[in-house]
Each structure stands twice: as C-alpha cells, then as structure tokens.
Computed example of a mutant assay.
Amino acid sequence: MAEAARRAPALAGPEWVLALRQTAGRGRRGREWRDPPGNFAATLILRPAGGPAAAALYSFVAALALHDALAAVAGPAVPLAIKWPNDVLLNGGKVAGILLESTGAGTGALSHLAVGIGVNLRHAPAPEVLEPGAMLPVSLCGETGVEVTPEDFLAYLGPAFARFQAQYETFGFAPIRTAWLARAARLGQTVTARTRAEVSVGTFETIDETGALVLKTAQGRRAIAAADVFF
C-alpha cells in the first residue's frame, strides 16, 4: 500500500504492485496483518471515475475476484465464501482480506484508489497472535494441499478482477451485488455486527444498493454501513 501511494501520482492507468515480502502489513482500522514468506500481498492502483461511495464498492469487486481466483486455483469443489465486509473464507476460516485506501482530489473526487489484498497461500498466523474474537485464519496450502506462488496467483487474480471491474463500471453495482450474495457466508443466519458504539444481533438478510449489511433484528430491520461481523 505504501509503494502504491508512492507510485500513484505518476501512473496513467491501473497497475498492480506485488510484494514478495511485507514487513509492515496492516488491515482494517490499522490492525496488524501478518505476512510470512510465500503468502500473497498485492495492491491494485486505480483511478475510479466516481466519488468515495462508488469507490468503496470496489471491495465487493475485489472479494468476487478473490473468490473466483481461489476457486480456479484449488478447484470449484473447495468450500469458499465471502464474509461481509471484506474477507474470503475457506472451510469456514479466513484465508484472505481486503483493504481499500484512497487519496482525494478535491470536490469529492478521488485521485486514486488502492485495493490491497492479502491471501494466506502457504501459511496462516498462529491463533495465539490474534486479537480476541478474531476469525480463525487458514491457508490455501494447509486446507487443500494446493501450492501456488504469489506470482502465479496474481495471474489468476488480475484477470478475475478485470472481469468484475468491467461489469461494475458498465452495469453498476446491481450485478456485483447479485454475484456477491450468491457467495455470501451465513446469509439467512444469525450474525453479530459490532461497531465502536453498539452491538447488533440479527438475521443476515442481504446487502443493500450501497453495500451496507442488512439485518433483521428484534428492534426491526437495520442497514449497517460499517462494522465487524462475528458468527
């Protein structure tokens, strides 16, 4: 992400930055992202046409691309799912995460968007280094026996991202939302959404047209724009 920010002002078009070793990985809200050798850490630099709200929906584009790239590498029978808002699960454990960062250009426009993606290809962090309540991490190799290098995985991920990006930019969020829901983890089941201010428990009904999580709770239907979700 740091290298993407350094390169972005000079770029005329999109570019992938692949790190073969990362020593300062981070996730949402500044959390540490551990990245042992052999895992995947890459950032795609884009110049989205819309404002911040439209750019935020690229997390769903990235999740779909990750899901399909992992399925292409490991085979369609491997149990994959997408966890709102930005994780991909394999056998119920977290195998990949997504982080979006942007730089403004004034008047609500963006100068660039960095889509950061981390995948546990070979190694998963030990449970004891995780924060309390965090989802158990898994690796692609550990769960399936499939070994793939970061460079080879990018050869799957790049075209998958381009395919869903073209769909989003041509037809809007609706087909992305439909495809995402078809791959969603715990859809129709009870989940817990935690923000810094409150905790909401309810049935995961859908995501709305802004990408917000929609829960059916005891207090009524709620749309939650940002939260950590627990199963």
Rank of each mutant, 00 (worst) to 15 (best):
C141P: 00
L64N: 05
P76R: 14
G97K: 03
A71C: 12
D35H: 09
K83M: 05
E151A: 13
F230G: 06
L140D: 00
R21Y: 12
G220Y: 12
M135Q: 10
V119M: 05
L99P: 01
K216P: 00
P9F: 07
A56F: 02
E101Y: 01
L11M: 12
K216V: 09
D152P: 02
A212C: 12
D87T: 04
G104Y: 06
P36G: 12
R177N: 12
L154I: 05
S111A: 15
A41Q: 05
D68V: 10
L64C: 12
A55D: 03
R29A: 13
P127W: 07
F204M: 08
A63F: 07
K94E: 06
F60D: 00
W16I: 09
E143K: 07
G211W: 02
M1V: 08
T43H: 04
A225K: 15
F231Y: 11
N91V: 03
G30S: 03
D35A: 14
A197K: 15
A5S: 13
L90W: 01
V115Y: 00
H123K: 05
R177F: 10
T178I: 08
A179R: 00
R21L: 13
G50T: 08
L110K: 01
D35E: 12
F40I: 07
R186W: 14
T170P: 01
N120Q: 06
P9W: 07
I45C: 04
A226W: 03
E101Q: 05
T107A: 13
G108E: 06
G142S: 11
L136F: 02
D152F: 07
P127M: 07
S200W: 12
R26C: 06
A218G: 15
L110V: 07
P36R: 13
G158W: 08
A160W: 02
A10F: 15
A24E: 13
I207W: 06
R31A: 13
G27K: 04
E3W: 06
E15C: 14
T192C: 15
A54D: 15
A226G: 05
R31N: 15
T178L: 10
E169V: 11
P9H: 09
V214P: 07
A174L: 14
A49E: 10
L90E: 01
G13Q: 11
A19E: 11
V73N: 00
V119H: 02
L187N: 07
R26G: 12
E3H: 09
S139Q: 02
G38Y: 09
G104E: 05
R186G: 04
A56H: 06
L154D: 01
A225E: 15
E198F: 06
G93H: 12
Q219S: 14
E143D: 10
T195H: 13
P48D: 06
E128Y: 09
D35N: 13
D87F: 04
V214I: 13
L64D: 04
A42E: 04
A24K: 10
A69P: 01
